[in-house]
């Protein structure tokens, strides 16, 4: 095994500059978690990257920026923050009910939308399976496409499911979106391709080629149609957490 494969030093510099994409980041995260030498070198490279902005001519931010931050901060206190100078109920109680209410409302809206979609789809085994409570839910964020999001609903058997997305841009006929499941130290596996409608939404049946417990990253890339053997485009959606 070459030294570079044993210690991916050249990728550490790129990582510190933000130049690695999903599966490569996962590989480096795994490595530095187990290699103190590389973890130390990565920290040094991060320090170097953080000094780069010091070489820029400083530009002061507009005064209204702080006013906006202060106003928003006053409206949205950190979770668990105690209200300074008050007595009585702890701060967490003050934030708990609004958070639970917002969560319940969002789940209700999601469920209503999902039921609407289900009732307007042709009946079939996959729809019937999804009509039962799905086994797992994966939430994807628009890391490469701000404003986009996705929900991966995996059936109880763990082998197939449905992907619902919003906010992705429609692609030309020569391009397609593709779902990937990434394991450590292995090539990403495709979960299928899909396209979005004019409104930027997709509802696609997908395959789940690996156990979700083995996946370190789940994401969506843009690829040449009809899809690629491995990711070649940047990740537009990536899973943050799943349960």
């Amino acid at each position: 095994m070459t030294e570079e494969r044993e210690h991916p030093i050249e990728d550490l510099a790129a990582y510190a500059l933000g130049g690695l994409e999903g599966p490569e980041r996962v590989r480096i995260d795994d490595h530095v978690g187990a290699c103190a030498a590389c973890a130390g070198l990565l920290e040094q490279y991060r320090a170097v990257a953080a000094t780069l902005p010091l070489g820029l001519d400083p530009v002061p931010p507009p005064a209204e920026a702080w006013a906006v931050i202060r106003a928003e901060a006053a409206r949205h206190r950190p979770p668990g923050a105690e209200r300074v100078g008050t007595t009585g109920r702890p701060g967490w109680r003050r934030v708990m009910w609004p958070v639970l209410t917002a969560l319940a409302a969002s789940l209700l809206v999601w469920n209503v939308v999902l039921q609407f979609e289900l009732t307007h789809r042709p009946p079939g085994p996959e729809v019937e399976a999804l009509a039962r409570r799905p086994g797992r839910l994966v939430i994807l964020a628009g890391t490469g496409a701000p404003g986009a999001s996705g929900r991966l609903l995996v059936a109880i058997d763990g082998h197939h499911g449905h992907l619902a997305t919003a906010g992705l841009s429609p692609l030309s006929a020569e391009r397609t979106y593709q779902l990937w499941f990434v394991r450590p130290r292995a090539a990403p596996m495709s979960g299928g391709t899909f396209s979005v409608d004019a409104g930027g939404r997709a509802w696609a049946t997908i395959t789940v080629p690996i156990s979700l417990d083995d996946a370190r990253l789940i994401g969506v890339t843009e690829e040449p149609a009809p899809g690629s053997a491995e990711p070649t485009g940047r990740y537009v959606l990536e899973a943050k957490t799943w349960r």
């Binding site: 990728d11 510099a13 500059l17 170097v48 000094t51």
Partner: peptide, 12 residues
């Protein structure tokens, strides 16, 4: 990758 790594080593 080599250029990036060499540059970061020099900057470091």
């Amino acid at each position: 990758k080599s250029r990036t790594r060499e540059a970061m080593d020099r900057l470091r």
